[in-house]
Each structure stands twice: as structure tokens, then as C-alpha cells.
């Protein structure tokens, strides 16, 4: 009983802070995901369609894009975060707070998203691409009416993976004053040694991740017509 009354008091005391931090985490993550997909989808399509035997084979372009994506993905986020501080300041005017965090998060997420899109698109059977070509479809039509529509459930699953990955990044950004639940955990849980706050933020993060994963799976299963009976 004492545990619950303590927990209640704690939640009551930090209610505002917890709510704001959760909101900030969602804000940072969802906006970064959105922008990263706007940039990453065309990039992923580009990589897939220039691959050998695809709709617009172009080896040099394919290799070059693939390299760039790999380079982007190999830089640890915490380093990218610091390295991009001047860029962030230029774009947002500050390096502190949730909005500033969106810059490095988005830049880190674009190559990740491009790879996720690539993964989803290459799953589409080559026979379908050949079918599209045989029917006289343009490359553009094959991309939109064959590749993207057939891989939509897979792309949706990829989106939830990306969001969850970015929630992890947002916690790192919290370490340098980026706001969000990570920031709260570092400031109160670590610097002030308030383990209970740390625990509460962890539970909140687990809940957020769980909801996003389950939501993504539910939407993907709902729209996937490959196993309709």
C-alpha cells in the first residue's frame, strides 16, 4: 500500500513534467518520422529502381546511392547529434529543445528510412514488375501501381520500426538538452539520482513503444490482402 501511495504522490508531483515530456517525445519523433519519410521514400525508390534487372538499371547511380546511405547509417547518432549542431543552429536558430532535436533526428532517419523502403520494395515479386512492363506500364506506373501498392503492408510495418528507433534516438538527444522523456530521465533520474522518476519514464517509454508497435501491426494486417479467407 505504501508503494502505491508513494507512486501516487510522485505522479501527482511530476504530473505536468511527465505529460510535457511525453508530448515532446511524441512530437520530436513523429515530426522527424514524417519528414524522414518524405525524403526517404523517393531515395529508397531511386535505389531500388536503379538496381540491376530493375525498371531503370543504372549501376553507377545505384552503387553511389547505396554507399551514401551506408555512410549515413554508419555514423553513431550521438556523434551525428553533436556534429550537426552548427546545421541545427542555422536551421532552427537554437540547439536546445524539442524543435532543434528534429534536425539531427531527421537527418539520421533518412538513410534508415531509405533502407526500410528498399527492403519493402525488393520483396515484391519480379514477376509483377515483368507483368507491368508486358502490359505497357511506364516506370512511374510500375512504381506507384505495382511496387508501392503491393508492399504497402510491409512499408507500414517499417514505419512503426522507424518510429520506435527514433524514440531511442530522442532519448540520446535528451542527453544534450533536447527535451522529451530521455531528457527527463537524464536530468531527474541520473543527475538528481531520483530512481523512481527514472522508472516512471521507462514505463512510459515502454507503453509508447508498445502502442506504436501494436498499432502498426494492426494497420498492416488490416490492409494486407495476401491472407484473406
Amino acid at each position: 500500500m505504501e508503494f502505491f501511495s508513494n507512486l501516487f504522490n510522485l505522479l501527482n508531483e511530476f504530473k505536468g513534467l511527465l505529460l510535457v515530456s511525453t508530448w515532446q517525445t511524441l512530437y520530436i519523433t513523429l515530426i522527424s518520422t514524417l519528414i524522414a519519410y518524405l525524403l526517404g521514400i523517393p531515395l529508397g525508390i531511386w535505389v531500388v529502381s536503379t538496381a540491376p534487372n530493375s525498371i531503370a538499371p543504372n549501376r553507377p547511380v545505384h552503387e553511389f546511392m547505396s554507399r551514401i546511405i551506408n555512410i549515413g547509417r554508419s555514423i553513431p547518432f550521438i556523434i551525428l547529434l553533436v556534429a550537426l549542431l552548427p546545421v541545427t543552429r542555422m536551421l532552427v536558430g537554437t540547439t536546445i529543445g524539442p524543435t532543434a532535436t528534429i534536425v539531427p533526428m531527421t537527418i539520421a532517419a533518412v538513410p534508415f528510412v531509405a533502407r526500410m523502403i528498399e527492403q519493402s520494395l525488393v520483396e515484391v515479386d519480379n514477376g509483377l514488375i515483368e507483368m507491368g512492363q508486358a502490359m505497357g506500364a511506364t516506370s512511374f506506373q510500375i512504381i506507384f501501381k505495382v511496387l508501392l501498392t503491393e508492399s504497402l503492408p510491409s512499408i507500414i510495418r517499417g514505419i512503426s520500426i522507424t518510429i520506435i528507433n527514433l524514440i531511442g534516438y530522442s532519448a540520446m538527444a535528451g542527453a544534450v538538452g533536447g527535451g522529451g522523456l530521455g531528457d527527463l530521465a537524464i536530468r531527474y533520474g541520473y543527475h538528481r539520482r531520483q530512481t523512481d522518476i527514472m522508472m516512471v519514464t521507462i514505463v512510459l517509454l515502454i507503453l509508447v513503444v508498445e502502442v506504436i508497435q501494436m498499432g502498426g501491426n494492426a494497420i498492416a494486417s488490416k490492409i494486407d490482402k495476401r491472407n484473406v479467407h
Partner: peptide, 30 residues
């Protein structure tokens, strides 16, 4: 030229996320 030549394949190559009528409509749509 290809729009004037129909083709069927060993593996039907249907769009699995589209209905029967959407699949049949595909060549006309494009």
C-alpha cells in the same frame, strides 16, 4: 505495342493487394 499484346504467365503474376476486378482493370488503367 505492348498494350496491344496480352500476356499470361506460369505464375499468374496477379496484384495480391488488389481485387479481381482491379486486377483485370490494370492494363486499361495504365
Amino acid at each position: 505495342l505492348r498494350r496491344q499484346i496480352g500476356m499470361i504467365f506460369q505464375s499468374h503474376n496477379l496484384l495480391m493487394q488488389k481485387t479481381v476486378s482491379q486486377n483485370i482493370a490494370f492494363p486499361m488503367e495504365i
